[in-house]
Amino acid sequence: MSWIDLGPVTDIPVRGARTLKTALGCVAVFRTAEDEVFALTDRCPHKGGPLSEGIVHGQSVTCPLHNWVFDLNTGVAKGEDATVETFAVRVEAGRVLIDASRLAGRSAA
């Protein structure tokens, strides 16, 4: 694993998200009310809605276009046959780290 420092967790709004540009497309990094962080592909499999613009509640996010609700842990859409990719991300000493080896590895494959 190679962890990349994305900056302080306070750069992400509480119950909100910011986006990352990656070789795999946009990835949304979420921050919950409890300061947990999650990273998911920023694209709803339904109509391509930007999940980073959705309402974050508990450990879920609701797509802003048609209200599909995704579990931030698994990327699984509740009640739908759909999943978005999740990426390893963690907070250490107030800074957000993402496992970029996987992002890079995937793009090279």
Partner: peptide, 15 residues
Amino acid sequence: DRYQTLADLTLEAAE
């Protein structure tokens, strides 16, 4: 700046 992306990893990924 709040409307911009947090980081651009495409450079790292391309290495």
